[in-house]
Design a protein around this nucleic acid. Sequence first.
RNA 1: GGUUCCGUAGCUCAGUUGGAUAGAGCAACAGCCUUCUAAGCUGUGGGUCGCGCGUUCGAAUCGCGCCGGAAUCACCA
Length: 575
Amino acid sequence: MTDFKDLIANEIFDEALGLEIEEIRNMIEIPADESMGDYAFPCFRLAKTLRKAPQMIAEDVAKSAGGNPAFSKVENVNAYVNFFIDRAYFAADVIKEVSDKGDSYGRSDVGNGKKVIVEYSSPNIAKPFHIGHIRSTVIGNALYKLYDATGYDTVRINHLGDYGTQFGKMIVAYRKWGSEEKLASDPIKTLLGYYTRFHDEAKKDPSLDDEARETFVRLEAGETEEVELWKKFRELSLAEFSRVYDMLGIEFDSYAGESFYSDKMPRFIQELKDKGLLVESQGAQIVDLEDYGLGAAMITKSDGSSLYVTRDIAAAVYRKEHYDFYKCIYVVASQQNLHFKQWKKVLELMGYEWEKDCVHVPFGLVSLSDGDDVVMMSTRDGKVVFLEDVLNTAVAKTAEIMHEKNAQDVDIDEVSKEVGIGAVIFQELSNNRIKDYVFSWDKVLNFDGETGPYVQYTHARASSVLRNADAADLEAIAKGDIDAAYLSGDSAYMLAKLIYRVPEIVIEAADKYEPSILTRHLVDIAQAFNKFYHDEHILVDDVNEKRAKLALVAVSKTVIANCLGLLGIKAPERM
RNA sequence: GGUUCCGUAGCUCAGUUGGAUAGAGCAACAGCCUUCUAAGCUGUGGGUCGCGCGUUCGAAUCGCGCCGGAAUCACCA
């Protein structure tokens, strides 16, 4: 595919301007308005060095840069030099590229096989998956796919919250009030019941908390009885989580959670001591980070047991030694910003220079509305929306709509899952990660406008047009036997331009750890396709015109499916 | 109180690493199915880009100061 910025930079280049080709390339921008061309080169900055009015510079550049057949027009407007690309040339270029690449259009090899670890989802064992957990899960999955698509060698880690004092609590509760049959029949709800009961009782009798801490100490010391119970809780929980992961189509390469690092910590505690970083404070061992404005990072509690930071240090070093990563990405809520800053600082003080390659990718908080108030989700107080309920409701609503519309030749069972779950994922990925939001049923169940179903619908619509085409037409476009001159209308051109940008958008989304960049672009593509669909009749009598338009439809369908795939969403043929 | 993040249309949000007249969707209203899927398309109304000062040829975007909201600040993760 032609790189038009390169092409333009080479046209503009002139030693008298005093700019390298690469500098010129970086200055080229895309005008806000179509009528001002496809690419623009602003000359303001040159005014100083050339000691000439920017308009005059633009005029000169425009004069010398014309003449290439790829451009239909090059003109200056005030200080801008505007480039108009020849539309037929452009459409032919884009269609050929997407047709050749097919499923791999949008992928690139900028990662050059370097190892990238993505840690995401990481739920706490023994607690239900709620709507807050979807963020790390879905954003992390999209980032994994984006890194995979840009040529990195990826490892997906589910850093399970399967350790810590909470398991001391759970074991104490189970021993006091537990029942094996209840646990087997509905594990998560039963475990959750123990957990909430523990907290209620501990309010009255604080000695329970001490008992829980002691129990965790025994668990960490490897006492058989505690370890057996903990194993049981972990396995039962994992089985339930995998049901949700299956619905979302999400997999992991490793489930090495916090417990995995339990026996790997003493080495680092010793190392911290040896390096003179560890200080005793009120019976606990800390690293003092006051000088960096980061407070104190607690490494071991006064009873000697470990903490979050300790386990994360062990995990990071283990991963570096085991995977030798180029980059390790942590998709974890912004609530833990301080924790990650402390942890990185400790690694830095320990002399691990590669801590710079560890990236915390934070995301905003999901809260619930409670009357006029907005409240944080709380499993304990029952103020919680379960992810599985949201997914099931979205699927049911989709099936209802499909029945209303009398969908023909469609497996409603299958497609309603793809669309309903796709809607939930899509919504999660459509805003900037960092934004907080308040969960709303109306919003997740809205399938109009900038939504997953809208994009999927566009894909199904394109598929439908292709089904209505003749075999001879499809054969011709497969061979590339088309006349792109029929694709110079505004809406066809707009669509082609958006498709052209997909590979760079994928790279940008990965670089910025921001799947929403791709989601937004995908909505733009769907809008452009629908406009094209309405503006121009596709299956016209004129064979050449029909084939050119069909080629653009086929290419659009491929691109939409590829982009949905990168977000972890299915692209049904009919809906 | 310290630190970090957020503030753009009634609501939810984009805004291309400082550029040309600030854009979508939802909601409201008005149109478009005897041609390819109306989960669609077209149009109308709706803005002191939280406020102020500064840097610059140029600021929603960068700096500083306020105002408002959120998260977080040692034995949870």
